[in-house]
Computed example of a mutant assay.
Amino acid sequence: MKKVAFAVEQTDELCKVSGDLDFTTAKEALDRLGAMVGASEQLQISFENVASCNSAALALMVELKGLARRAGHQVTFNQVPEGIQQLARVCQVEEIIA
C-alpha cells in the first residue's frame, strides 16, 4: 500500500487531518496538533481525510485531550475512523475521544 503524506490544515477553530496517521507520523502530528490545541480555546479536529491510521492515532487523540484539559481548552474530534472508534471501545477510552 502506498503511503499518503500526512498533512494538517487549519481554518479558525477547525483543523483537518489528512494522509496517513500512524507510528511514523504520530510525533509530527502531536507537535503540530498539540501547538494548535494550546493556541485555541476550542478546536475541532476532523479525521475525514485520513487515508489510513492505527493505534498511534488513538494515543494521539488521548494525548491531545490531556493537553487541552491541562490548558483549560476544549478539543473535539469528528469523522473518527471506525477502526479507531472500535479500538477506543476495547481500551475503554471511548468517552475520552467522544
Rank of each mutant, 00 (worst) to 15 (best):
K16E: 12
A5R: 13
Q10F: 02
M61N: 01
M36R: 11
V8Q: 04
E48W: 01
R32S: 02
A39C: 07
V80D: 02
Q86F: 10
L87E: 04
V8A: 05
R69S: 13
V8I: 15
D22L: 03
V17I: 13
L60A: 08
Q44W: 10
P81Q: 04
N54T: 06
L87Q: 06
A71M: 12
C53G: 02
Q42K: 14
V37C: 03
L43R: 02
F6T: 02
S40R: 09
A71F: 05
L87P: 09
A59L: 04
V8N: 01
A51R: 13
L43I: 03
V50N: 05
G19P: 03
Q42V: 11
K16C: 11
L60I: 07
I96Q: 08
A39P: 09
S46M: 09
Q44C: 08
K27M: 12
S40C: 10
E9C: 06
T11Q: 11
L21C: 05
V93K: 07
E13K: 13
D31T: 11
L43M: 07
S40L: 00
S46F: 10
L21Q: 05
V75R: 01
N54Q: 06
V37N: 00
E94R: 07
K27E: 15
V37R: 03
A35K: 13
Q85G: 08
A35I: 04
G72T: 01
I97W: 07
I96V: 15
Q85A: 10
N49Y: 09
S55L: 02
V37L: 00
A98Y: 07
L33C: 10
H73P: 05
Q42D: 13
V4N: 14
V8M: 01
A26I: 10
